[in-house]
Computed example of a mutant assay.
Amino acid sequence: MKMVKPFVWVMIIFLMLAIPQPASGAFWNVTGEKMIHDPSLIKEGNTWYVFGTGEANKNGIRVLRSDNGTNWYTTPVIFPTAPSWWKTYVPNHESNQWAPDIQYYNGRYWLYYSVSSFGSNNSLIGLLSTHSISSGQWRDDGLVVRSTSSSNFNAIDGDLVIDKDGNPWLSYGSFWSGIKLTRLDKNTMKPTGSVYSIASRPNIPNNPIEAPSITYRNGYYYLFVSFDRCCNGVNSTYKIAYGRSKNITGPYVDKNGVSMMNGGGTILDAGNDVWKGPGHQDVYNNNIIIRHAYDATNNGMPTMLINDLYWDSQGWPSY
């Protein structure tokens, strides 16, 4: 048998290491309380928090906490009693609040949330803020943006993103004419200036796209969205898609160069036999992604899934 010289083995190993290998993001071993819809993740000090849609027919925004990132437990809801001003804009709103997004900016934690009724675009996005999540003291910063039955968009699913120059923006939208983006005033954290359309599926009935999440990395803004329909247990058809742009206002294109305004979007996660309808994703710190999916082994319970997020050599996300 012919022997391979040592330097040849060295070259083989070197070449193997030089070739990009497929990455598979690790699932976090989440234990304890896992039930949630529309999760948004943040860390304050050594403590992790997840904010999500409140339980149906119950008041408030759901909040989970973990001291190590894996074992989670419930904490008191935000808004155990609905502020009276909501009914001024959404008279028949659901008791629970939807799709909160939590971000830290300029010394405060900003929590955007949605008030609506299912299937309607008579909706609003409101804002809370605090200097410390653990304090439990939230300031009601009021109305951010609203939509009515005559609007061509739906004011839910707000997502705060900070651009490369330190300016805050809010993306939002669900069905109707798709995903919107507007710049925010740095002091009020409310809209100022134009509203941009950045993603739509005009050739799909009812334009099923929602839950935007934007992150900036290495010269690109990455827009993650959820396609199709959630909230139907194991029959949900939710899936996560993405595209990217050099400019925060777009145009965003997928890996095939298709504009996300024309239905483009590369699928990141369409679920599997256990996890049905994954979606309403939130990207944290560019290396973690959280979303919910319906557990086919547990009566379709909406369950939070957390993964390490990876990026390939061309700058596209994977896990």
Rank of each mutant, 00 (worst) to 15 (best):
Ser66Asp: 04
Leu181Gly: 03
Ala270Thr: 09
Ala56Leu: 14
Phe27Arg: 14
Trp275Ile: 07
Trp275Arg: 12
Tyr104Ser: 06
Asn167Val: 14
Val283Pro: 11
Ser116Trp: 04
Asn207Glu: 13
Gln281Pro: 00
Ser200Met: 13
Thr47Tyr: 09
Pro168Ile: 12
Asp273Glu: 12
Tyr221Pro: 06
Thr249Cys: 02
Ala211Cys: 07
Thr88Cys: 03
Tyr73Asp: 11
Val274Gly: 00
Ser135Arg: 06
Pro251Glu: 14
Thr130Arg: 11
Val234Ala: 01
Lys58Arg: 14
Val258Lys: 15
Asn92Asp: 15
Val274Ser: 00
Ser117Met: 06
Ala26Gly: 01
Ser151Thr: 12
Tyr252Trp: 07
Met35Tyr: 00
Ala18Asp: 08
Val10Asp: 01
Arg139Thr: 15
Tyr109Thr: 05
Leu15Phe: 14
Arg291Gly: 09
Val8Asn: 10
Phe153Leu: 05
Ala296Ser: 15
Tyr222Leu: 02
Val283Arg: 11
Phe7Trp: 05
Ile102Tyr: 06
Leu128Trp: 08
Val144Gly: 00
Ile306Thr: 06
Trp28His: 12
Lys2Asp: 13
Leu15Asp: 03
Thr297Lys: 10
Asn218Gln: 14
Ile306Ser: 00
Asp67Phe: 07
Ala155His: 08
Tyr172Arg: 05
Val10Pro: 00
Pro202Ile: 04
Leu127Arg: 11
Phe79Gln: 05
Asn203Pro: 03
Ile198Thr: 11
Val274Pro: 00
Val115Trp: 03
Gly142Gln: 02
Ile12Gln: 13
Ile198Val: 15
Glu55Ile: 14
Ala82Gly: 00
Leu223Asn: 07
Ala293Asn: 12
Gly233Ala: 05
Asn206Arg: 12
Glu55Ser: 13
Tyr196Met: 04
Ala241Asp: 08
Met1Leu: 10
Phe118Gly: 02
Met260His: 11
Gly271Trp: 02
Asp163Val: 11
Lys164Ile: 10
Phe153Met: 00
Asn92Gln: 15
Asn154Ser: 13
Trp9Arg: 13
Ile289His: 09
His93Cys: 01
Pro83Tyr: 03
Tyr319Ala: 10
Thr237Tyr: 01
Trp85Pro: 00
Ala270Tyr: 11
Asn207Ile: 08
Asn29Pro: 04
Leu160Met: 15
Ser313Phe: 11
Thr249His: 07
Ile78Ser: 09
Gly243Phe: 01
Ser245Trp: 10
Asp157Phe: 10
Tyr238Gly: 05
Pro80Ser: 04
Leu309Trp: 01
Ser114Val: 00
Asp163His: 09
Ala82Leu: 06
Asn256Leu: 03
Ala296Lys: 10
Tyr73Arg: 12
Gly257Tyr: 01
Gly315Ala: 03
Ser123Gln: 01
Leu223Gly: 03
Asn256Thr: 06
Ser177Ile: 02
Leu128His: 07
Leu223Phe: 10
Pro83Trp: 08
Glu33Pro: 00
Glu33Ile: 12
Gly119Asn: 05
Ser117Tyr: 09
Asp67His: 08
Tyr216Pro: 05
Tyr221Lys: 04
Lys190Gly: 13
Glu55Met: 14
Ser116Asp: 04
Ser174Pro: 10
Gly233Asn: 12
Pro302Glu: 02
Met11His: 02
Gly277Val: 06
Ser123Phe: 02
Leu111His: 10
Thr148Leu: 02
Asn167Lys: 15
Val161Cys: 07
Tyr73Asn: 13
Gly52Asn: 02
Arg217Ala: 11
Asn206Trp: 12
Tyr112Ala: 10
Gly193Asn: 09
Ser174Leu: 13
